[in-house]
């Protein structure tokens, strides 16, 4: 009997138009992830890790190949279906936090729950809970501009986790943080992974992040070089 994976990619190819030709960022990748993994796509710039993360996050489509993400075939996903999948089951953490600057910390974390149409009381409870996880409950009225980089990234983690998604995709989450903040953020994510069995998938080349990973997938020029479990 075939095992059911959280993410199951088969022969994924991604090409980008470049001049009159095209550039192939992913060259037929086969990868599977199970629920609860704390894994990372590791490689230098241009290795295809962010491209793969975008395809898994349904923000982009593969040029060839396909597979399933959270049970949905990604190659046939309509824009509205992809949006619904992201809204309900996928969280994103970005290198530059991508917080909504004019919103407070509370409103930033509340945003995914607003999209889900959750009632106000329940929303408030969950937002404060999520801010508790990242240790920022007392800063819920602050605006992103009043926070440090580490605090901003913790708000981004709270925003990604507040709806308790099945999958969190983190693209270079520590690239803008110093060592102390990086460890703080990574420990927070590790704890959340253990507490909720949420699958975390990173795109990184930061040694600090790599040291926390339980599965390390090395990419080079759009190809899988090594898949190592710790």
């Amino acid at each position: 009997m075939e095992q059911s994976y959280l993410i199951d990619l088969k022969q994924v190819v991604k090409r980008f138009p470049m001049g009159k030709g095209s550039f192939t960022a992913l060259k037929g990748l086969d990868l599977q992830f199970e629920a609860g993994e704390f894994a990372g796509l590791i490689g230098p710039s241009g290795s295809g890790k962010t491209t793969l993360l975008n395809i898994i996050g349904t923000l982009d489509l593969p040029s060839e190949g396909g597979g399933t993400v959270l049970g949905h075939p990604i190659e046939h996903l309509k824009a509205s279906e992809a949006a619904l999948l992201r809204k309900e089951r996928i969280g994103f953490i970005f290198q530059s936090y991508n917080l909504l600057q004019v919103h407070t910390v509370f409103e930033n974390v509340e945003f995914p729950l607003l999209l889900l149409g959750m009632p106000s009381e329940e929303r408030r409870k969950k937002v404060m809970e999520a801010l508790d996880w990242v240790g920022l409950a007392d800063r819920h009225r602050s605006r992103p501009s009043q926070l440090s980089g580490g605090e901003c990234q913790r708000v981004a983690i709270a925003r990604a986790m507040v709806k308790q998604p099945s999958l969190v995709l983190a693209d270079e989450p520590t690239a803008n943080l110093d060592a102390a903040n990086s460890h703080h953020v990574l420990k927070t994510m590790q704890q959340l992974n253990e507490a909720f069995q949420t699958t975390f998938l990173f795109a990184t080349h930061d040694e600090k992040v790599i040291s926390y990973l339980k599965r390390k997938i090395y990419l080079m020029d759009g190809q899988l070089v090594k898949d190592e479990r710790v």
């Binding site: 996050g57 923000l59 824009a79 509205s80 949006a83 619904l84 992201r86 809204k87 309900e88 994103f92 970005f94 530059s96 991508n98 909504l100 600057q101 945003f111 995914p112 999209l115 925003r159």
Partner: peptide, 16 residues
């Protein structure tokens, strides 16, 4: 732009 991208990543369609 980043904000627009974030909206899409968080579950908005581009039309929304």
């Amino acid at each position: 732009q980043k904000e627009i991208g974030t909206y899409v990543a968080l579950g908005y369609t581009r039309r929304e």
